[in-house]
Every structure is written in structure tokens, then in C-alpha cells.
Design a binder for these strands. Sequence first.
DNA 1: AAAATAAACAACCGCTCCCTT
DNA 2: GAAGGGAGCGGTTGTTTATTT
Length: 327
Amino acid sequence: MGRSPCCDKVGLKKGPWTPEEDQKLLAYIEEHGHGSWRALPAKAGLQRCGKSCRLRWTNYLRPDIKRGKFSLQEEQTIIQLHALLGNRWSAIATHLPKRTDNEIKNYWNTHLKKRLAKMGIDPVTHKSKNDALLSSDGESKNAANLSHMAQWESARLEAEARLVRESKLRSHSIQHQLSSTTPGYIPGSGSSPGSTSALVQPQRSLDVLKAWNGGWSKSSEGAGGENSISMTEFVGTSGSTESGIIKEEGKTCDDVHAGKNVMEEGFTHLLLGDSAERSLSDNGKDSDHSGGSGSGSGSSNYYEDNKNYWNSILNLVNSSPSSSPMF
DNA sequence: AAAATAAACAACCGCTCCCTT
DNA sequence: GAAGGGAGCGGTTGTTTATTT
């Protein structure tokens, strides 16, 4: 709109914040709240633009910020949510209490993105780079996987297309939704009012799941080339993006955390287990998953575990606080 | 021990969205 | 409905710190 930038005033300080500046900003906000960010610097006696103050506050000074290393659970949450949401850092941050979008973004760019790349996963699409290799493998198991993957991919594309349509409709329909007695109903989604399958989710995480479950630990060495990821049995609820995925309305934050716990149980142990077995002599085929059982019955458990996992992550997403900008 | 390189993090910039007038 | 302004978001850059040679 041709608006002048807020930070072009001569004399405004840029660059790293000093402890004195931090103290001024903290003291002012604690006493008055931030109010108008644009007006804040003058009131607080800071030679900074409001934008800079806001950033400093939200990313560093805010008292409810957790700093330090990301836990495995947090890593998993970020990856999964990124698979679902893309680079919507603020949306992802709403599911990681006490973490800022900037911090998550930085962590993704410096750690997780590289890690996924090493695992043979495109960090943008969360799709395996080994699909071609997989398809030429010829094993019946992989053929079955392909079938599942095709179903999922098809459903995913469909869901994404729906998402695009809805995003266009959203601005028009949001008022109606707010006043609607059927909050789960999304106009144009093809779902019936009150249906539990009104959920719209791009399913972009299948390769991440596979790799994370099967290839996480061995990827870092890069042994066996860039194709070191084992193509584990495909996970999910085959046949539909929505079967096995129950949308539950009206969940509380506790429910969210409960979902996280389930996720933690269902996922972290895989990670930890893999990490513990980092040195295993995986050859890709029999290093399939969870605890390294590698047996057919294990696959069944694996299937269930991951079904539960997906239910959990989607519940987590769907039961976000209403303030969440995600959906 | 010093230089070079890589990694991590904080902050800036420009754009978009949303609200108000 | 259009315009203006504020705030937030995501991409990118710059600086600092750690690691390697």
C-alpha cells in the first residue's frame, strides 16, 4: 500500500540489544504492558523502532519463554507439524508451549532441515527422494507399500486441493461458521454438517514417518549412500485419509497434552530406540521399526502404533486452542 | 596457537493480513 | 468499498561461537 517503513527514522538504533535496553523494555512492559508497539519506544526511552521492540520482547524477553535445547518430543512435533503446515512457524509455535516461532524457525533451518535431508527426505515436501528407487525395487512388500502410498498421496492431493478451495472460501464463510451451530462443517468440503470427517488435512508426512521410524538413526552416518533410509512398511490408515482419524471437537488444552503424551509414547520410543541402536547393522530391510522386532507381528503393532500416532498428532492439531491461526 | 570453516542464533526487512476510519 | 495504519509472519542476513585443519 505504499506505506513507509516504520524503521527508517534516522537515529534509531539497530543491531544487538544491550542489557540496558532490555531492562528498559522489560520494565516498561511490566508496568504498562506493551500497548501500541509503535508508540512504545518513545515512552520507554528507547532509540528503537516499535517493530524491533516487539521482536525483542516476543523472541527473547517474554517471561514465558523456554530456552535451551529442543527435546526429542519437540523435534518430532515440529517435524510433524511442518509436514502438515509447511513453513507456518507461528502456527507450529502455538503447539510448542514456550517456544517462539523464530526459535522454531531457526532450529528447523539449522538442525531439522539438514537432518531430514540426510535421511533422504525433502524437507520442503516431506517426501522421500527414494521413491524412484523404491519403485524399482520390485519386492512385493514395497509394492504393497506403494499401493498404500499411492492411496495416501492421492488423498493428500485431494485434501490439499480442498484446502486451497477452502482458503479462498474462508474469508467469505468465516462469519457463517462463527454463527453456525455445526462448527465442524466446512462449506465446500463435501462433508455433511456434523460429520466427524469434516477434517481437512494435507497428508504430507508419510515419508517423514517412514524415514523417522526406519531410517532416523542410520542417516547421520550417510553409510550406504544417500539411500540409507529403509523403506519401512508404510504407515497409516490405508484406503482413506480419514479412516482412523477422528476429529474431536471441543477439546481442551489438557486433551492436547494428552495427545502429545500419546504421541510421545508412540513416537519418541522409536526415536530413542533407534538412537540406542544407532550402531545396528541395519541393511534397510529388516531394520523396520519400533524396538527392532522386525517380525511380521511387529509390523502389526507397528501399524497400530502409527495409526495411534496419527490420530494423536491430528487430534493435537485439531484440538488446538481456538486462537490457533492454523485452521 | 592461529586461521579457516561451519554452526547457531539474534535481529532486520519486506510483505501480507486485519482492523479502523 | 477504498485507503491508511498497526501488527504479525516468514525469509534472509549478520554476528557470534564452536569446531576443524
